[in-house]
Design a protein around this nucleic acid. Sequence first.
RNA 1: GCUUGUGUAGCACAGUCGGUAGUGCAGCUCAUUCGUAAUGAGCAGGUCGCAGGUUCGAACCCUGUCACAAGCUCCA
Length: 649
Amino acid sequence: MDGKIKVTLRDDVREFDSGITAAEVAKSLGMGLYKASCACKVNGTVCDLRTTLTKDCTLEILTFTDDEGKKAFRHTAAHVMAQAVKHLYPDAKLCIGPAIDNGFYYDFDVDKAFTPEDLSAIEAEMKKIVKADIPLERFELSPEDATAYMTERGENYKVELIAEHAEKGDAISLYKQGDFTDLCAGPHLMSTGTIKAFKLTQCTGAYWRGDANNAMLCRVYGTAFPKASELEEYLAAVEEAKKRDHNLIGRQLEYFTTSDVIGQGLPIMLPKGAKIIQTLQRFVEDEEERRGWLLTKTPFMAKSDLYKISGHWDHYRDGMFVLGDPESEDEVFALRPMTCPFQYQAYLNRARSYRDLPLRYNETSTLFRNEASGEMHGLIRVRQFTISEGHLMCTPEQLEQEFKGCLELAIYMLKTLGLYEDVSYRFSQWDPADKEKYIGTPEQWEEAQGLMERILNHLEIPYKVGVGEAAFYGPKLDIQIKNVHGKEDTLITIQIDQLLAAQFGMEYTDADGVKKTPCIIHRTSIGCYERTLALLIEKYAGAMPMWLSPEQVRILPISEKFKEQCEEVTAKLKNAGIRATCDTRSEKIGYKIREAQLDKVNYMLIMGEKECETGTVSVRSRSEGDLGALTVDEFMAKALLEIATKEIK
RNA sequence: GCUUGUGUAGCACAGUCGGUAGUGCAGCUCAUUCGUAAUGAGCAGGUCGCAGGUUCGAACCCUGUCACAAGCUCCA
């Protein structure tokens, strides 16, 4: 162990005694760095600062500004919280407590779930632990000793985890801080004193191992920062984001509402919301037609026979609204949860030739899914929704090109809406271990996924893999977006399906006269209108771009004397296809402007004596304020241009 | 479906120890005819989510139920 080692740092190479810890190296580089250090990377692997260096290596000191450093910091905060909980509730059993995107959580098994009031007591206890500045120590045990250790303490969840790690051959490491010891892979901070600013944000339920069949645990979420100012800034940003919540401002602005007597997940689109959706639909259908998609209109329901062929009856029935008693001999219908089998019947209308392919069917399709009652969320997750759905039948040779076409269409839509920068890609694959969910053989899945992987790599799509996220019939490329709460949902999906065509007996006659099974792409171009609207509301805080705006222009007479001329201008704008209204109430101009601003009207046209004499309007933009006077024709040209170009401002 | 909260006028919210419901905005009426984010006065509006229960008496306590919110699970 004695002797010297060469440590390659970010900027230079230094020599140290063998056996030095990463923390000591950091200290030698400067106390500032040492105090800010959270973890390190040795030869590219994230490690604990306690790691002793005995060979030549590269070393990177990670601070809170590095993702991995942040994780170590917040993971330690999770341990501090667990220690506090054990102090206050000795019977609480420890489950898991990782760092997450914006903080950390820890799951506990307790007799009575914590309420928000309990959190402040836990926070107070955490403060004591931080103040005591307790050093963390890492040690390893054999699986047997670790099991005995945790069994003695009644930590049965930890025992389960140890068995799992042991099976994989992992080392069983534990971290001790004062009277608290946790099974943990680390890395962790050197001491609890570094966690200066933290807050427990909420407590909820969560299933052990994420399985609804398991026990419901009590999960406490929190966040932590090195400085109080950073914590305050973060909490303020969260509050600010909540003000953009579509479920709040979508109701305030009267885009939609809900009704107890109609039911959960069944929003009522009010005139303004309905206008936005209509505008989107017209745009999407026209654009799809331009790109060679053929519109179908298929029924909202079908006999169970159809769903039995598609597999929905066996694999999706819980998610369907079934009309009638499935146990009886009578005909049973079900509302459609997907459009696929309906458009397949359109394909089956006559014998198909390779000359018919690719055959692209699109439909503005209303679907019905009986979501569990706790799933509904504003317009994002509902029981009835309308999606820009499409199915494309093609030859295997055409598949990549057509997949690319679907993706290009989706990207074009996202760019037009201004959401392109906000999305990420997920390659959703099956879970070979889940025998219930999926149809088809492992060979068929490997083939379909291999194909999609080649296409995605060829198109250079930067994706994350989601195991177990596939549809029951095939892999998907999901285009994901986060809402104001940071929760991710699928906005757009493009799927390859090599199973259902055969089940439906879909064929085409190839050039060589042989009957073959087509490849199918399921895709949406703009997603479901309700969800897309929700994300647009959040993106723009309710202030829609001109082309989508339910009220593009409001004419504001200074007084009732100018009412008639104002109404003439309103009519002229309406005739030109501009969504314009006139506020003829006997209110002051300041009041009318205030209301128009709050209603997110794009342009206010103020008309008084001056304007009426000269045939002009005083233009006020929602975002840019007073723009001065324009003639009515000049303003109309400006407005129509902004609408036509779908400008976002 | 599960965990924890919430539910009072169209909206935002008060309502103490259980004693019979309030404020602001919006609405309506009248006056005002006004120059770039709130003119004034008056009027009206509520089985306190719904259904039971406890009590002399329930917005308040208890039970059930429906809806809403966040999280889990599920999913476009």
